[in-house]
Structures are given as C-alpha cells and as structure tokens.
Amino acid sequence: MRSVKLLLRLIRLQIRSQLQYPASFILEVISGVIIMGFYFVAFALTFSRFDNIGGWSLGEVAFVWGLAEFSFGTMDMIFSGFDYDAFGPMIRKGQFDQLLLRPVNITLQVFGSRFVLRRLGKMIEGLAIFIYSLTLIQVEWTAFKLLYLPVLVVSQVFFFGSLFVIGATTTFWTMERLEILNIFSYGGNEVMSYPMHIFPRPIRMLFTYVVPAILLSYYPAVYMLGKTDPLGAPAFVSFLAPVVAAAMFWLALRFWHFGIRNYQSSGS
C-alpha cells in the first residue's frame, strides 16, 4: 500500500514536470491525434470506394479500431517504464541497480520510472474513432454489454501491457531489442484494429494461439456488434477477454520476477 502511494506520488511529479510548458504539450498531443488519426482517415477515405470489408461496415471497423487505439494508448502511458526504449537504457546504464537500492517494490518503481502523459493523444484519437463508430452504427446495448465494455478496455490494456513487460524482461539477457516482440505488441495493435477474420490463416493462427489477440478484440466485438462469425467459434469465446488478459499478465509478472532474480545472480 505504501509502495502504491509512492508510485502515485512519482507519477504526479512526472506529470507536473511534463506539463511545465503547457502550450508545447498541448501542441504535441494535438499533432499526435492528427497524425495517428490520419491512418484511420486514410482507411475511411479508401473505404468509400468499397461496400464492406469481410462483411463489416466502416462503423463496425471503427468500433474495434477505436477500442484498440484507446487501449494501446492507455497502456503506453502507464507501462512506459517497461517500454524497451526506456527500460533498455535503464539496464545498460546501470540505473536499474538504483531501484534495487531503494526499500520499495521494484516492479512498482519501474511503473513509476516513466509516465508519458503525451500518450493522451492516442487515447483521444482512439476515443474519437470509437465515438465516430457509434454515430455510424446501431449497437443493441444491454446492461451486460455496457458493463463488459470497460472490462474489455481494461483487458486490452493488460494484454498489451503484458507484452511490454515480457519485452522488458528479455533485456535482462540480451542487450539487443528483440524486435520480434514488436510484432506482437504493435502488430497486435494493428490486427486488432480490423475484423480479424479477414487475415489469412497463418496470421490468424499466430494471433490466436501464440498471442491470443483475437480473444481480446474480434470475438468480444462479434458479440457486441451482433456479427456472425465465419470461423464458427462457440459463443462463450467472446467473454474470455478478461480471463486471457489476467492469465497473460500473471505469466508476464512471473517471467519478470524470474528475470530480476537472474539479474541478481549473474550481474549486469
């Protein structure tokens, strides 16, 4: 509990430091929204020449696209300490040792080591696309769906977060960035922005059985939007998102702790 309070304090200090030049910050956020958002704009403009993609309308694509963007942006803001670009140098420059020398939980210290408020841009962009989707389609909202939506977002956040944690852990062993992991995190973000049944079988298999992105995006959306699933999976699969995310995060943390123990026995 004490460590959590320290974490919040550290985050608050970083936010204050990042908001030192508010005009510059706002400009960066806005430019982020525009640039990242253009990717969807390009898709939407292109889409007007076609009727649907895999039987899904633009609004339906925007539904999963916006969710994935919002979740990834949220994750990127919170888990930034585990981002290879931040954590790699931390290990290389020996700053990780500093964390071990403080009487505070190490994992929470890594969370607190970097909080990038700028990622708000991606969150806003995702939200905007999601809201846009709601203007295009009619979702039959039920109480359960309304409850499931935030659960789905949180699940996606921890799904992506697990990949970041795993990526950071690998730096204990290799100095090189394992970009193969980017395929799962950033690639995962990419495929989760579309109805995943449009991808060829190998890609689908990768994102079902290796990194279960399909259970975090496609199947929940199939349920929410009332789509038919040409892949023929049982209905309950749509509700596995929180279970999968929790399991992944648990595994990631175990790997992470294993990494720390190994770091302490073999040195840097």
């Binding site: 309070k5 320290l6 304090r9 550290l10 200090l13 970083q14 430091s17 420059k93 020996g94 700053q95 500093q98 020398l101 403080r102 009487p103 505070v104």
Partner: peptide, 24 residues
C-alpha cells in the same frame, strides 16, 4: 556512485529529496 546518479533525472532536486523522504 560517481558514475551515475541516485536521483530522478527529469525532476528538480527538491522533488527528488521529497521523494526520498517518503521512500525512507
């Protein structure tokens, strides 16, 4: 450690010291 700092890189010194107060 002479080669690297024990404090937080981007934060003003006062913030670092304040954090230490709470950490310890």
């Amino acid at each position: 450690f002479g080669q690297r700092t024990t404090l937080w890189w981007d934060l003003p010194l006062t913030d670092s010291f304040d954090l230490l107060k709470h950490i310890y």
